[in-house]
């Protein structure tokens, strides 16, 4: 059996094949590299217990839509089962450059939209005040820009990653 999993857009390949001599022993190949085999000793509703070289590992597992969420020893692992959509890849790729889409970093409520469409904004200028869990968060422009479109109004509830404001870059003018 072979599965492809995705973490932050990166593809990971896992081959797992039941070993002949024992039906709970799996031979593992991780991104082309053979690994120590694992005994899968118990698969329950929401948990899986492994033995790797005699050492037990207990995983809590939930499948949520396309994602699998796993907790092992207090740390959380998250995988997608299908490749990331194009725009998610682009979003990661543009880090550090001009970001035209101002997205909500958390689910929350819009406290105030501080700009109007067409307004020229400076690097660091506050565009939107967002509140979640009694914490205020100012979303700012990265680089000088013009406000192209505003998608939200005061009091709106927004989701994580929702586009709030779209900016267009202002070309630096000759003096």
């Amino acid at each position: 059996m072979k599965t492809l999993l995705y973490v932050a857009g990166e593809e990971l390949a896992l081959e797992y094949n039941q070993h002949g001599e024992s039906d709970d022993l799996y031979e593992l190949v991780w991104n082309g590299q053979p690994q120590q085999p694992a005994h899968v000793v118990a698969v329950r509703d929401g948990t899986i217990t492994f033995l790797v070289d005699g050492h037990p590992l207990h995983a809590h597992v939930v499948r949520a839509g396309d994602r699998s969420l796993i907790s092992i020893e207090g740390r959380t692992y998250e995988f997608n089962h299908t490749p990331p959509k194009h725009d998610q890849v682009r979003q990661r790729g543009t880090r550090g450059g001009f970001e035209p889409e101002i997205r909500s970093p958390m689910p929350g409520k819009i406290l105030a939209v501080k700009v109007v469409e067409g307004e020229a904004v400076e690097d660091g200028q506050t565009l939107v005040l967002l509140e979640a869990m009694k914490m205020e968060n100012a979303l700012t422009a990265e680089g000088n820009a013009r406000v192209a479109t505003i998608h939200v109004a005061d009091g709106d509830l927004v989701e994580l990653g929702q586009v709030l404001v779209e900016l267009e870059p202002i070309e630096s003018r000759q003096p």
């Binding site: 599965t3 999993l5 694992a38 492994f50 590992l57 995983a59 796993i70 692992y77 995988f79």
Partner: peptide
């Protein structure tokens, strides 16, 4: 435990 987590995701 990345590998164990991946296996859990696959077998779950």
């Amino acid at each position: 435990h990345m590998l164990a987590a991946a296996l859990a995701a696959s077998l779950h």
